[in-house]
Amino acid sequence: MSNMSLTPLFRRSIGFDRFNDLFDYAMQSETPNYPPYNIEKTADNHYRIVVATAGFSEDELSIHLENSVLSISGKPSEDDKDGNIELLHKGIARRAFKLSLRLDEHIEVQNASYEHGLLSIALQRIIPEEKMPRQIPIGTKSAQPLIETQAS
């Protein structure tokens, strides 16, 4: 695999240093593909991650959030194995997994639910008031200065 320089992309951007890491991660050939999952946008600032976890119970799944990294893991219990059953075809993968997703700084996890073998995690983008878009007024030369100095 050849190295690709993304320097031209960063010349006109400020604070987008993590994009390089995201591109590197996306281009890795060992990107996890188990379990299958969807990332859905349900409204303007609402998202949902749906993970297909067929065969797992709620007790065998865990969700952990640390440093804006959402980790979803599953570990099947060993006491489900029945020695009397001989599998002729095993098409349902029921193996341990860990899925990690990086969340944007303003994304918050709202709740999680498990139904019909699908783990759903609701997310919401909550932008603080100081980060909201605002109009910047344009002053004229005759306008009052922003900082008043004391007369000596």
Rank of each mutant, 00 (worst) to 15 (best):
I85Q: 06
I136F: 09
E66T: 08
A96N: 08
Y34I: 03
S120A: 15
P35A: 03
M132S: 11
L103E: 01
F97D: 00
S77T: 15
D44A: 07
L65Y: 05
D24C: 08
L6P: 04
D59H: 10
L101F: 00
P145Q: 05
D80T: 13
L87H: 10
N45V: 05
G83T: 07
H89D: 12
E58D: 11
I49L: 02
L99S: 03
Y37R: 00
R12F: 14
E105N: 08
F56S: 02
S100Q: 08
K131Q: 12
P137Q: 07
L70Q: 02
Y47W: 12
S2M: 13
K81M: 11
I138F: 10
M132V: 05
L123D: 00
D44W: 03
A151V: 09
I126L: 14
D59R: 14
P35W: 02
L61N: 01
M4V: 15
N84T: 15
A54E: 11
R94I: 06
T149A: 11
P76M: 03
Q144I: 12
L61W: 01
I121Y: 02
F10G: 09
L87M: 11
H64F: 14
Q135D: 13
E86M: 10
L118Q: 14
I14V: 13
I39C: 02
V69R: 14
I126V: 15
E58Y: 07
A151Y: 06
E66V: 06
F16P: 00
I147F: 14
G74P: 00
T31S: 11
D24M: 09
L103D: 01
P145Y: 04
N111G: 10
N20V: 08
I107M: 14
I63D: 03
I107Q: 07
K75C: 09
L118V: 09
F23V: 15
G139C: 07
A96D: 10
I63G: 03
H106D: 15
K90H: 07
Y34H: 04
E105F: 06
